[in-house]
């Protein structure tokens, strides 16, 4: 896997990289909670609500991973059928596909934020630690918004005259 340069530089990409690293730290934290829980279980004790803490940490981490994956154009897609298509056709397709991704992601981000507001208003919480679910939604929303911005930037960037290069 190449360095960050490969994905091009820019403020959004740097933000995506930082958020992915932060998400990685959350994943490591979930790992630590789980290991601690195993360690305590070995002495006949359990951490109350460790699974719900892991769920929240990992859920936010995955949302924070999304912009980075988008910035790297790493989401799985089929390129084989169009690999030999003429350059203008491929660029047109990519422009349309990019816009579609941006729209879908924008929709997801909007609904997730609404879901977070609902969770806040309705007092949804976890079973044992009574952690408010809206914390998770609010944190995840950061990832979704950045994901939207990057997808949008990519779909617009494809309009510039530089030829679009297929993913290496």
């Amino acid at each position: 896997m190449g360095g960050p340069e490969a994905a091009g530089v820019g403020l959004l990409d740097r933000a995506a990289r930082a958020l992915a690293i932060a998400g990685g730290v959350l994943l490591v934290a979930a790992m630590a909670v789980t290991v601690a829980s195993v360690g305590r279980a070995a002495f006949g004790r359990a951490i109350l609500g460790d699974t719900e803490l892991v769920e929240l940490l990992v859920g936010v981490a995955i949302a924070w991973f999304m912009p980075w994956c988008q910035a790297r154009r790493a989401h799985v897609r089929l390129e084989v059928f169009t690999a030999r298509a003429p350059e203008p056709v491929r660029r047109a397709l990519d422009r349309a596909a990019g816009l579609m991704v941006a729209l879908v992601v924008a929709l997801l981000a909007w609904r997730l934020i609404q879901g977070g507001l609902d969770a806040h208003e309705r007092g949804r919480q976890t079973m044992f630690l009574e952690l408010p679910l809206w914390w998770g939604y609010a944190a995840a929303a950061i990832g979704m918004v950045l994901w939207t911005m990057i997808a949008l930037a990519q779909s617009v960037a494809r309009l510039d005259p530089a030829p679009s290069t297929p993913r290496p």
């Binding site: 279980a41 006949g44 004790r45 359990a46 109350l48 609500g49 699974t51 719900e52 079973m127 044992f128 009574e130």
Partner: peptide, 23 residues
């Protein structure tokens, strides 16, 4: 360690001297 589903049964289990676990 006793598996329970519900906050107050969790507290009951704690009151009995065990640890509630949510699975």
């Amino acid at each position: 360690r006793i598996r329970v589903a519900g906050r107050f049964i969790g507290e009951t289990v704690s009151a009995f001297g065990a640890t509630p676990v949510g699975i």
